[in-house]
Design a protein around this nucleic acid. Sequence first.
DNA 1: TTAATACAATAGTAACACTATCATTTATAA
DNA 2: TTATAAATGATAGTGTTACTATTGTATTAA
Lengths: 226, 226
Amino acid sequence: MDFQVSFNVNNKLFVKDPDNTDLGRQIVKNAIDLIYTLGFEQFTFKKLAIEIQTTEATIYRYFENKHKLLLYILNWYWSYMEFLVMFKLQNLDNPEIKLIAVIDLLTSDLPDTSGKFDYNKKYLNQIVISESSKAYLVKDISEINKDEVFKPYKDLCSKIADLIAEYNPKYQFPKSLTTTLIESSHQQQFFADNLPKLTDVNSNNHQDFVRLFLKELLFSSIVKKV
Amino acid sequence: MDFQVSFNVNNKLFVKDPDNTDLGRQIVKNAIDLIYTLGFEQFTFKKLAIEIQTTEATIYRYFENKHKLLLYILNWYWSYMEFLVMFKLQNLDNPEIKLIAVIDLLTSDLPDTSGKFDYNKKYLNQIVISESSKAYLVKDISEINKDEVFKPYKDLCSKIADLIAEYNPKYQFPKSLTTTLIESSHQQQFFADNLPKLTDVNSNNHQDFVRLFLKELLFSSIVKKV
DNA sequence: TTAATACAATAGTAACACTATCATTTATAA
DNA sequence: TTATAAATGATAGTGTTACTATTGTATTAA
């Protein structure tokens, strides 16, 4: 694939739209690299400022705090993922094949894009795996949820849940199964890499393993019972 | 139930065993209350010290940092949970009934105990739901894993995975299914409470809902195919 | 040419995550 | 009972984090 993609990320997530300036895009791009390298807890605006040779104060003009920056990055990812799902499902009719395509997407790295958004897709993927739950597992979740900062995630979930309902309208838990698939896909990849005894991974290709597990989990849950 | 329980929590998790002194037990008990109230990010040793009218320095004599304290609390929880599983499964033969009992345990509050460990079980449960993944989603996971700080969690998982293998020896992913059940049980409870649109809850009793969902998920995965 | 905007440079504050020192209380053992 | 060690309290201090404020300069737009 080779085209430019661009999404309107929720404007409650930034003070000044980083998408509009070179510096803004540098901030986001280098934030991804640095969060990947240091982990979210060790990542600070100070370190990011040094990395791109600017000052903390400047970064604060774009983002209120690092949590919002993380949410911005994740929203970009979820929006992109929803776009990819839409794109890949074009011209597909069979609900089973559609769901298989979705699982493949959820367990693959993002395709590289050229142009303005040359974020490191491998890093971005790892951030989603290791850091995304920290975006919602916070005490002020109900406050930040009011700003609709989880809309892209919810939209993606709802789209996949619809596919499940299409496959088997009688299945009772399409949304919970969807979030379980998505979150489990991250967890199992993380465990396979870091705590492999918590999984059944045996090959070297962890993504293949997770893909297999999730397909089994999904289709045995939603199979139409006679 | 009414008896005293006591576990040997991994001694790499503390500097001085909090289990041996009144002050140590106060620290753990009040840490649970405070982490529940403030969330792990806002929780500090300073605030805890004020709460129990001691000083930061004193708390540092028991725990190196708040991450280790969280791990200590979670290890206590996982050890207790494994004990409860063992206890509840006594005298049960039928693997299906055993697995149902396990899911019931995973989706219920801990029973109250008297004696030294009068931790607030409702708070502890919420901490497990909201904070436990923060114990392992850290950059230095491989370092801390060397100290076997995840052993109680792994032991519990392995015990449940064995039950799955007992039910259906041909099922390929007993461990991954187990971690998925446990983690999903937390997530779905968290989502039901905070981001209900990501789930299919309709009743007021979120625990019943999660229980139903997980049983369905588990047994459709491991059903013996003809 | 003026005026606005964007950014850099610098300084400062309160909280956090510790470490160190020393005095005092408490438990224990000779 | 006294000596001794261990546990805790009190206090201080350091470097870092998470910001906010101010002021000067370069760029751009009217």
